[in-house]
Write a protein that binds this DNA or RNA. Structure first.
Lengths: 229, 229
DNA sequence: TGTCATCAGGTGGTCTGACCAATACGACCC
DNA sequence: GGGTCGTATTGGTCAGACCACCTGATGACA
């Protein structure tokens, strides 16, 4: 026997927030939303309420707001995850250590599922990412291509939550790698990505997961992040 | 050669948000923060700015705001993760499927690390959670004790990001399980938790991870969620 | 003495209108 | 065609008013 709590009516801000989210969902990335003043008039609420609602959507990664310019639709649902991880572990080195560990849990399984589920288009995209890694000139390009490969794998797993996590993890790692962490052996990463890609092309899930596991161990060693055993 | 973007000065809302976050960090869970009007006077900004900043902190899970009552400090950093996952996968059944898959990636590794890293206190807490599961009368109590056990394992892994993810995942699963999903064989879960706990007490990391993997497969079958292979 | 109802004061929620800071766009000039 | 300037529009902030909700104190009654 459970007595449910009595539901409070949503505040105006919450209601407007949902309306705006619906509106944003009907638009594409980069499209403009109506101005604060216009939304205020159209929805029959004060501009404060529109502002507060819009700012919620911004924090959720659904829109970006620019003073003088308006609001535009974006697809950055990972943004609140980034903030949360940053708040939880403010120290960059510590955070990199923890992120690396989470990747070691998540990514072999993503890769295993990708081997089973990747579409032809996704396999092609993985090949392109691998090419970009092979041809990368700067460290920034390497990191970008590297993380792209990992993001694509997570997408190919068919699990949107894993894909979102990977977006967040990779972006945070990219930010850390831009600040003083250097990869010393890109050639090994290229080879290991190649082994992963091959296992996926063969639809060999176990081999793919093992190859990813190996790759992440190397990547961790490369970054000089040995987590306590 | 990288030219960094020119940093914009933070908006007043951002600045106040950081101040409030600092203030919240100095307080304990449940403590009250100054009122909007007081903060407005003390910080020399308008009440709108304080409101907008406070609402950011609420969305981040650092405070809770109650009309007529004020703001209190909470520790719910997983809240924005819950929202993001909910936005990403609005359909409850789909979300449960995906969450279950993510758990299958994360939890064996958490459990392996817990076997290596759990403190004596954490092992005791795990035992208590197991007792609570054994003694649970209602389905709600079972689910709560079950999820508590998993949360404690994630904490015992020593990885705060995993622990945060597990908080979010378990809360979302609990919410779904409160809405029509029924576990049919609690006795098996109790046995499997027992096996996990035993492996942890023996500090056998591989056995712990295997036991968790097994447990999650059973739990998934129990919920009738067979993910596409 | 304990319980319940009421009320006042204080809290956050919303509104309005004014003004400031940043952006975009069009017109004009070289 | 490219650069500059001015204006209109956008979001950011402010102040003050009023509304809806909460809390704690007080008084009445059993």
């Amino acid at each position: 026997m459970t007595i449910d709590t009595i539901a409070r009516p949503p505040s105006l801000v919450e209601t407007v927030c949902e309306r705006l989210a619906d509106l944003a969902r009907q638009e594409s990335d980069g499209d403009r939303l109506p101005t604060e003043r216009e939304l205020s008039a159209r929805l029959g609420v004060s501009r404060s309420v529109v502002r507060e609602a819009a700012q919620r959507l911004e924090l959720q990664g659904l829109i970006e707001i620019r003073q003088g310019s308006g609001m535009k639709v974006v697809d950055k649902l990972h943004k609140p995850l980034n903030s949360a991880f940053h708040l939880l572990v403010p120290d960059e080195k510590q955070r990199l250590v923890h992120l690396t560990e989470v990747r070691q849990a998540l990514e072999p399984e993503n890769t295993r599922l990708a081997a089973l589920r990747a579409t032809g288009t996704q396999v092609k995209e993985l090949r392109l990412a691998q090419s970009r890694l092979e041809q990368a000139r700067s460290f920034e390009e390497q990191v970008h291509a590297d993380m792209d490969f990992h993001r694509l794998l997570a997408e190919a797993s068919g699990n949107p939550i894993s894909a979102l996590l990977m977006q967040s993890l990779s972006e945070l790692m990219q930010a850390s790698l831009a600040h003083g962490y250097r990869r010393v052996t890109p050639a090994l990463a290229i080879r290991q990505h190649g082994a992963i890609l091959q296992a996926i092309e063969k639809r060999d899930a176990a081999a793919a997961a093992r190859a990813m596991h190996r790759h992440l161990l190397s990547a961790r060693a490369d970054l000089g992040l040995d987590s306590p055993r």
